[in-house]
Design a protein around this nucleic acid. Structure first.
Length: 231
DNA sequence: GCCCAGGTGGGTA
DNA sequence: TACCCACATGGG
């Protein structure tokens, strides 16, 4: 193992999967909304919800703010947890209104540490969602840790067991990689690609897979992993 | 029918 | 701190 195993793994993933072109969205607001809707939810279902928001003209801050709670819930229903997520979306709109005069641009230009604290105070936004918004919508060099990341890192023993909590693991990525938002964005997307691709049940092709040592085969895939990532 | 998906927050011991 | 559980929909 090299001195910067997380950097080595990035190269291997990039060589294998190529660029992922994340975050898939037309506007920064769509990134913010998508980051909330995708919590514990397949992206396919998020796309359904985003399409419904677009159809209804609700995929911009002012329109979403004016929508009734029931209409907002109905629009995002396919993404699951729709009542909780609608409340979270309204929480972000309130933050936008209260601190940035309703201007998303101004919010995204705020210092990363300030915005992160403000986002974490919104009910329904935890460290992963806050960091996804900071990275992909605001362009801050903040690494996003998700369940796939914890699974890969623990499976391949890329950091000591005591560093699997969200903050410690994030620090390890920050330490071992150049402080570059595009790199962080690509890396997180590649980890998700690996997580979706790799086997949970052993399949014939697994033996030949060059990424076998990173794959989550044999690991629990449920909230136990996510919990391990909790602070 | 069962398991899982790009989490979060609240409760209990 | 360490687990549990609710939250909800849609696809394999």
């Amino acid at each position: 193992m090299t001195q910067r195993p997380l950097a080595t793994v990035y190269t291997r993933l990039y060589d294998h999967y190529g660029p992922q072109h994340w975050w898939p969205a037309d506007t920064p607001f769509e990134i913010v909304v998508g980051a909330i809707l995708t919590q514990a939810t397949a992206w396919r279902n998020v796309e359904l919800a985003l399409a419904r928001l677009k159809e209804r003209g609700l995929l911009e801050p002012s329109a979403m703010r004016q929508a009734s709670p029931a209409d907002l819930e109905e629009a995002i229903r396919p993404a699951g947890y729709f009542r909780a997520k609608a409340q979270t979306l309204r929480g972000v709109l309130a933050l936008l209104e209260d601190h940035y005069g309703g201007s998303l641009d101004r919010m995204l230009q705020a210092p990363a540490a300030v915005l992160r604290e403000q986002l974490l105070r919104v009910r329904g936004i935890g460290p992963e969602t806050a960091d996804a918004i900071l990275l992909y919508a605001a362009g801050h060099p903040v690494f996003v840790i998700d369940a796939y990341t914890v699974r890969m890192v623990s499976r391949a023993a890329l950091v000591p067991p005591g560093e699997l909590g969200y903050q410690r693991l994030q620090e390890a990525f920050h330490r071992q990689l150049p402080r570059d938002p595009s790199l962080y964005g690509e890396y997180h997307a590649l980890i998700v690609a690996l997580g979706k691709d790799c086997c949970r049940k052993q399949r014939p092709r697994c033996g030949a897979c060059p990424l076998l040592d990173l794959c989550a085969y044999g690991q629990k895939t449920t909230s136990a992993v996510a919990q391990a990532a909790g602070n």
